[in-house]
Design a protein around this nucleic acid. Structure first.
Lengths: 334, 334
DNA sequence: TTGAAAGCGCTAACAT
DNA sequence: ATGTTAGCGCTTTCAA
């Protein structure tokens, strides 16, 4: 009932190979026969079966995307970058949520490899040794997007998380703060635990400010925990907050203001994300601007190079970031 | 180099058919031989090729998801609902962004059908006649998620958008407002143009309030246009706003407050979405609560029924909504 | 319970 | 420029 390449060949009085050639845009076809074949394709409503093609050619033109949670705006922005570039290179995307669960991640990898994806973009806050082992064993290229894997064995695209954190905290220090709190995301994330934390600590140390563990609070990146953190930190009287993401930062703003302090006069806040929320906050949030879309896009672009077996000059790409100064910090302009 | 079912069969001294049976959990295999086969599979690191399986069985256990924009939180929430249920039923998802562009939508449909997806979840603000035609012609089941198609020919999952809008506006009227603005989303969307607009108009008419076209503003659902709308409406002095989504509603809040009016004392606002932004606004937003995740989940569930050729009692499912009253409206409790 | 064999719909040599 | 043919790796009758 479904029309196949064989039906088209028969109707057009040519061989399957010829039909295949016109379908795939091979130039070795006489214009007249091409036209004839195209006509039959049209008449019969022939639609090439990509599964059969995949089996025969060993290419599926689909790539796997393993992402912690697509409903999280950080990741959905990344995903959009991935998808746009994938579309540009004619790939489709199989997208799955891992919820940062290692077993799910392993199983997803297995499923996608079983589906013969041509490549994989992988995102995870923590690449465990067993995960790394599987990533290395993959018969298909893999690139990590916004995910740290320190051996450098797997290609990745990131920003300099340490540097960005350092710079943000330094700005707070330059504005005269000595008691700077760090509202961190989950320490299970390597980026949080090692890179941002290190940026925070070193910025303090370089300014001869003693690091006080009680000024760092581990949260789940939610608005509510952002508010709660401010309450919890009250005894320590922080005058500035370095906050892991915009949503928590808004929680911090609200808790600080409800506590009767004004921003940025009495308390300054700098976030680490710069989603569109940053401009929707009052005061508007100063924030480290993460190029999420670009991380996704560049990751996918890098993956296409691997899939085409092109030469790769650098498999660990570091994208630039910037700091967007708005109203939650005192700036020269303000 | 890649190990196939044939390699396993040879090593285990059984036929391919037997290997296939154990891989697929067929009970007609003697435990001893099952064990033997499993052992060889383990040793050889055999991973079934889903593409070959798909070609032979005519099932890919993959469904297509055509979505306007995954980076938009409304849709990413929907997508998460779809993906969770898909995973539950062991389907993977090919996800593509259409940007509401009809040509892209048509082309995506074509690509996905070519990839032999077992079903499709489709989202679009406007189902044009040609699109409807293609959806009807699909050899594979399709369900519309959060998308209106009035002929009822295609299965769909929605809420009663009209009723929800009506009820929201009625609430504003009951609170004493006569001059209620409607900050609408794009009128290219059928839901906006017909359903919500109708809810707004009928609520007014049923309360003997004349509908004034100058009180409705068509916006693009962004924060900035929400703010701008308030400025544009100033001459008409609205005392209440019915706003199409949370992001714009926050823009409305800010513009109203910057205009020196207090919420909810002087101006009331009710939104139509209830994303997590609603609680992050100050004052917190009252809002029609859209069950986005559920719309996605139920759509996918419905699709599995079609894919399994189960009996469907109702192909147009309407999910319940509720209205979440917070601080941007005056409530009995407040 | 197991095996043999015929496809599934296409691509990719290889011939012509 | 076009055709022939042998797979790709699996499922699925049908037989045994």
């Amino acid at each position: 009932m479904t029309v196949t390449i064989y039906d088209v060949a028969r109707e057009a009085n040519v061989s399957m190979a010829t039909v295949s050639r016109v379908v795939n845009g091979n130039q070795n076809v006489k214009p007249a026969t091409r036209k004839k074949v195209l006509k039959v394709i049209e008449e019969l409503g022939y639609r090439p079966n990509a599964v059969a093609r995949g089996l025969a050619s060993k290419k599926t033109t689909t790539v796997g995307v393993i992402i912690p949670d697509i409903s999280n705006s950080t990741y959905s922005e990344l995903a959009r970058g991935i998808e746009d570039i994938a579309t540009m290179y004619r790939y489709n995307i199989i997208l799955s949520n891992s919820d940062q669960n290692e077993n799910k991640e392993l199983q997803l990898l297995e499923t996608m490899l079983g589906k013969q994806v041509d490549g994989i973009v992988f995102m995870s806050d923590m690449i465990t040794p067993v995960l790394l082992h599987e990533l290395e064993r993959s018969p298909t290229p893999i690139v990590l997007a916004g995910s740290i894997e320190e051996t450098g064995k797997i290609a990745s695209v990131n920003i300099d998380y340490f540097e960005a954190a350092y710079e943000a905290v330094k700005k707070l220090i330059e504005n005269g703060h000595l008691n700077i709190a760090f509202i961190s995301g989950p320490m299970t994330s390597k980026i949080n635990r090692d890179y941002k934390m290190k940026g925070y600590r070193e910025a303090l140390e370089d300014a001869d400010i003693t690091f006080k563990p009680e000024l760092v609070v581990e949260c789940n990146n939610s608005y509510d925990e952002g508010m709660q953190a401010v309450l919890d930190l009250k005894p320590h009287k922080p005058t500035a907050y370095f906050v892991n993401n915009d949503e928590m930062a808004i929680g911090v703003i609200h808790a600080v203001e409800e506590g009767g302090q004004s921003i940025p006069e009495e308390v300054e806040i700098i976030s680490y994300e710069n989603s569109k929320l940053a401009r929707m906050a009052r005061p508007m949030l100063s924030s480290v601007a993460l190029p999420l879309y670009d991380i996704g896009a560049v990751s996918m672009r890098l993956l296409t190079k691997y899939m085409n077996k092109e030469e790769i000059d650098e498999n660990q790409v570091i994208l630039p970031y910037r700091i967007e100064e708005r109203q939650s910090t005192k700036n020269d302009e303000s």
